[in-house]
Amino acid sequence: MTDLLNAIVLLSNFLIIPGLSYGSQLALGALGVTLVYGVLRFSNFGHGETMSFGAMVTILTTWGLQSIGVSIHPLPTALIAIPVGIIVTIFFTLLIDQTVYKYHRTRKANPVTFLIVSIGVMFFMGGLIRFIIGPGDQIFFDGTRFILKAKEFKELTGLDEGLSLKMTQGVTIITAIIIVAGLFWFLNHTRTGKSMRAYSDNENLALLSGINPRKVVLVTWILVATLATIAGTLYGLDKSFKPFVYMQLLLPIFASAIVGGVGNPVGAIVGGYVIAFSELIMTFAYKKVVLYLAPEGTTVDSLIQLLGTNYKIAVSFIILVIVLIIRPTGIFQGKTL
């Protein structure tokens, strides 16, 4: 019995909790991609850099706050810096939209043109970010490191395995729940949210109903910038902030959006967790779990790891390819919000 409990705790500690927190970050990122796809109808490759940009502004604000001694201990100071990050990112995103995307929108450019333009935006933003904050690692986490320490858990339960919950993981999961609930409430219960869904569903009919496309586009970018800043900051808090990482994050984020059904917000969330857990399940070393569950005296030579952690990114790529071959529309049929 104790062995079983130990095995469960072990899995929770190294697989379930990290999976939930990484999945939440991917889900928030994928929601941004899905909103752009659903309303503006293109795959926004600049989204990773938007996340990075939002996180950067939040970090700069956090440093400012720290230097004047503001603190919300035990919570990380970054949480009160996020609103500033969001506002600056919204303005920056709208500036890009007005100067870059608007031109192609009025000419009704096809989605591939948009996609390539967004790659240009991605490189531009990436360069700008590295110019401002530098390419190196930035650690901006402060506050209490753990909500629950492994040692405390061991003492509390008397088990051999410890369960720890990092502050960043707790903050990530709770923030993601609040943001997702807020977004769905907005999309399903407000006039503006419904008009976004209507526009995404049938652009012509939305115009015939007197829905203003400019306003829909504006609100979409505001939501996208907000989601991106939050996702980027949470990821940076949990791991660390490094500009290049956000470019690599683009693959699992697109995989999440596509697996769930691009354009579908529920799909983006489910896709986020599917990708996060697949990556972890495939690269987790099961040796200790097997030892707990196997009859006593069993010896295991290998780590029982399906793939090295270096192949993490390959997992999302493989899932992406499989989904595109077998069910290109994703788990939930995508296209509309």
């Binding site: 419904k194 869904r197 209507a198 569903d201 049938n202 012509n204 009919l205 939305a206 015939l208 509309t336 919000l337």
Partner: peptide, 10 residues
């Protein structure tokens, strides 16, 4: 319009 005259997902 003749076609696509409702918001199907709503």
């Amino acid at each position: 319009p003749q076609n696509q005259n409702v918001f199907t997902s709503m």
